[in-house]
Amino acid sequence: MNLALWIAAGLLAVVALAGGISKTFVPKEKLAGTPGGEWTAHASVGFVRTLGVLEILAAVGLILPAVVDIAPVLVPVTAVCWVLLMVGAMITHVRHGSPRFVLLNLIYLALAAFIAWGRFGPESFTA
């Protein structure tokens, strides 16, 4: 179970890092032209970049606290925050008519929920 949680956290961290880098460093106009990025056309540059920074922080928060054993409780807390972020992402994609991205966000949400459940429960770092 511990291995599965590490794999899930690693996969989710890669997804968060990739999304965060694209939202932080790719121009908003270019993002608006990509599949799934249509919503950025209706958002401010500051909002898109803030989401990008939050995603980068999520990538760090899913891995680093456990690796360095400093405040490892931040791993499941970060996973819960990712669940909330994915709920917002799903609502946004529904509003902009991107149902396949809703399904993708649901998969990310499920991974984050698994990490939160596992790290708060049976495979807690504090146990």
Rank of each mutant, 00 (worst) to 15 (best):
A41T: 04
H42C: 02
H42W: 08
H42Y: 13
H42E: 11
H42S: 12
A43H: 10
S44R: 05
S44V: 07
S44G: 15
G46S: 11
G46F: 04
G46I: 05
F47I: 03
V48T: 07
R49S: 06
T50M: 14
T50I: 11
L51I: 10
L51H: 08
G52Q: 02
G52T: 02
G52P: 04
G52I: 01
V53R: 13
L54F: 14
E55G: 03
E55L: 12
E55F: 06
E55Y: 05
L57S: 03
L57E: 00
A58N: 02
A58G: 10
A59F: 01
V60N: 01
V60R: 04
V60H: 03
G61E: 00
G61I: 02
L62C: 02
L62E: 00
I63D: 00
I63S: 00
I63Y: 01
P65Y: 09
V68G: 01
V68H: 04
D69R: 10
D69L: 07
I70K: 06
I70C: 10
I70E: 12
A71N: 07
A71H: 09
P72S: 04
V73S: 09
L74P: 01
L74G: 03
V75W: 03
V75D: 00
P76I: 05
P76S: 08
V77Y: 09
V77F: 14
V77L: 15
V77T: 11
T78W: 04
T78E: 00
A79D: 00
V80P: 00
V80M: 10
V80R: 05
C81G: 13
W82M: 13
V83C: 14
V83A: 10
L85D: 01
M86D: 02
V87D: 05
V87A: 11
V87I: 13
V87H: 07
G88M: 08
G88Q: 07
G88W: 11
G88L: 07
A89I: 00
A89H: 01
A89Q: 01
M90C: 14
I91N: 11
I91E: 08
T92H: 05
T92G: 11
T92M: 10
H93S: 05
V94S: 15
R95A: 15
R95V: 09
R95H: 14
H96E: 11
G97S: 12
G97K: 11
R100V: 15
R100W: 13
R100L: 14
F101G: 06
F101V: 08
V102D: 11
V102E: 10
V102T: 12
L103S: 12
L104S: 13
L104K: 14
L104V: 14
L104T: 13
L104A: 15
L104R: 14
N105E: 09
L106A: 15
L106M: 14
I107Y: 11
I107S: 14
I107G: 13
Y108A: 12
Y108K: 09
Y108C: 14
Y108G: 15
L109Y: 04
L109N: 06
L109A: 15
A110Q: 07
A110H: 06
L111A: 12
L111Y: 02
L111T: 06
L111S: 08
A112V: 10
A112M: 09
A112N: 07
A112K: 10
A113N: 10
A113R: 12
F114I: 08
A116V: 11
A116L: 11
G118M: 04
G118K: 01
R119P: 05
R119W: 03
